[in-house]
Design a protein around this nucleic acid. Structure first.
Lengths: 177, 177
DNA sequence: TGGGTCGGTTCGGTCAATGAACCAGCACTC
DNA sequence: GAGTGCTGGTTCATTGACCGAACCGACCCA
């Protein structure tokens, strides 16, 4: 976002955070990373962002330590982008934003539901499991499709995300039935 | 943010939320509203945003029902911008962003601390009071300055925010000692 | 009559986002 | 080994958003 070229807003940790993740597309990239998207082409087809912007955002997120770029195949060389611990810590931000969009914006049918994988209970808006009474880390969250989702999207990544999935598990769009 | 002119990302409530509050300056305006800022000139001096951008953001936030514009004086006519219930519901988003910025970005000393006004306990990162075990609404939160704040800022709004204050209480920069 | 404040709007310049085209490295097929 | 396709980008011209400064109208006060 580059709020003021050199941190005009350094007085506030919210402003500091927005400097890093407040730019257009950035939080949607992180969201997709939670959903299991790891490869450049998958981010591209699911987000619909311009290629140059996506490349710049991925590089910026790697630079600040939210994503880690790692080689997963050597011939041909292919890298994937995986959330670091710092990136995983953004989960409450995405939860809060999603809950606000769902509850406060008119005409929104729930898109996705999040359940505690060990007991199946749907998470509360604060990210805790009402049954177990504990905050649930993203690795223990199962995402289930809601009524608001397009049942037959053109994009193969979106189609793969229609089935219930555990967060952070790598996506394989080829495996779509 | 106008992600794609007409909701390319409508499949996701996070994207819906970012359409509304994801633009530059928007969440900082909302943050200042929680801190008690209500008047155009106070937002202006505290944020340092261009006047045209601030006017556009305030109007947009009124249009989507996050802020309410209300007349508080007739001669001369003056309006103030106050958070609606929909705006108050953004509190968890700001909490989450601020906690992430404070905990995950290097070289950040805590700027502000948030305490439960009925018991004085500092709030946990999930926005609950550890002593009372309940989620604390913003009206029951007291903000106290932290070590990272500039002790003598030039801006009178920033100076007024140096003292412990309850959230949402209207700011009066004139009353600064 | 003049000056000051508040809450904007208007205006050029600049910077970032967009979409399309292009390209390099590699694998596969013929 | 030439052609074709996929992946992961970069380059480029155009569009749009943001920026800072100036301007402006309504109102108050001396």
């Amino acid at each position: 976002m580059a709020l003021g070229k050199d941190y005009v807003q350094q007085q506030c940790s919210i402003a500091r955070a927005l400097e890093v993740v407040g730019e257009r597309w950035t939080l949607l990239v992180v969201r997709d990373a939670f959903y299991g998207v790891r490869r450049y082409s998958d981010f591209l087809s699911h987000l619909g962002a311009p290629r140059a912007v996506l490349a710049a955002r991925l590089q910026a997120l790697v630079d600040v330590g939210v994503l880690d770029r790692r080689r997963y195949q050597d011939a041909p060389p292919r890298d994937e982008y995986v959330l670091t611990d710092r990136g995983l810590a953004l989960w409450p931000v995405l939860r809060a934003l999603g809950a606000w969009g769902r509850d406060e914006l008119p005409g929104t049918t729930p898109m996705r539901h999040f359940h505690h994988i060990v007991c199946g209970t749907e998470l509360a808006t604060n990210g805790e499991c009402p049954a177990c009474g504990v905050p649930v880390p993203p690795a223990d969250v199962e995402m289930r499709p809601g009524a608001g989702l397009d049942p037959d999207p053109a994009d193969p990544v979106a189609r793969a995300l229609l089935r219930p999935r555990r967060l952070l598990v790598p996506l394989d769009p080829e495996a779509t039935p």
